[in-house]
Computed example of a mutant assay.
Amino acid sequence: MSFDEEIRFQYLGRNPSLHAPVLSLIGCSVIFNSIIFYILPPTITPLKKSYIVSTIHALASVVAATLFYLFSTINLKQVNRIVGGGILATHDEKMVYSLCYSCGYFIYDIIIMLLFKSVRNRSALIHHVIIASSVLAGEC
C-alpha cells in the first residue's frame, strides 16, 4: 500500500476500502436473496415470500448494527465514515459489508417487484430505488 493510500485510510474514507469488494458483495447479496425467495415452497405467494426475505434482511441489519455499536467507538463528529468506506482496521469496514448486503437486498427486491405484479407497490419501489442508488453513490 502506498503512502497516499495509507493516509487516505487513516482518515475518513471517501471511496470504498480497497479491501472491500463492494460490487461483488452486492452481487452476492442479490443472488443470496434470490435463492432464498426461490427455495421457499411454491405454495407460498410471491408477496409472502417477499415478506419472508424482507424479515431476514431486517434481522441481519439489526444484528449488524447492534454488533457495530457494541464493539466500536462511536464518534458522531465523523461524518460519512461508513458509506465512505470507513477507516482501515476498524469496525467501519465491517459495516461496509452490511451496507453491501442491504444494497443487494434492495436491488433484489426491485427486481422481484418488477417481476411479480402482486408484490409491486409504487411507494416501496420508489423507496428501494432511492435507498439503493444512495448506497451505491457512496460505495462506488
Rank of each mutant, 00 (worst) to 15 (best):
V53E: 12
I35D: 10
P46N: 00
P46V: 00
K49P: 07
S54K: 11
T45V: 03
A65N: 11
P41L: 02
K49N: 12
L40T: 05
Y51E: 12
A65R: 13
C28P: 00
A60L: 15
S54M: 13
S29H: 01
K48Y: 05
I35Y: 14
L47K: 06
A60V: 02
S54Q: 06
V53A: 10
K48T: 13
S29A: 15
V62Q: 02
L59G: 15
H57Q: 11
P42V: 08
I44W: 04
I52R: 03
G27Y: 10
I26W: 02
Y38G: 00
A60N: 04
P46G: 12
S50D: 10
S50R: 07
S50H: 02
I39Q: 03
G27V: 07
L40I: 01
V63A: 04
A58N: 13
A58T: 15
L47H: 07
I35F: 15
A65E: 07
I36G: 05
I36W: 06
V62D: 07
K48Q: 14
A65D: 09
A58W: 12
I31G: 04
I26Q: 00
T45N: 06
C28K: 12
P41R: 03
C28Q: 07
F32I: 14
L59T: 15
S29K: 09
S34M: 06
S54P: 02
I56H: 03
S34A: 13
K48L: 11
Y51R: 05
I35C: 09
Y38V: 06
A65Q: 12
P46Y: 01
N33A: 04
A64D: 07
N33K: 01
K48M: 12
V30F: 08
T45E: 15
A64W: 07
T45M: 11
I44C: 02
I39L: 07
I26V: 15
V30K: 05
P42G: 11
P41S: 04
G27D: 03
F37W: 03
S54F: 15
P46M: 01
V30D: 10
I26C: 00
T43H: 03
T43S: 15
I44E: 13
S29Y: 02
A65M: 13
S29Q: 01
F32H: 09
F32M: 05
V62S: 04
I52V: 00
S29I: 05
T55S: 10
S61A: 14
F32S: 06
P46T: 03
F32Q: 04
I31M: 11
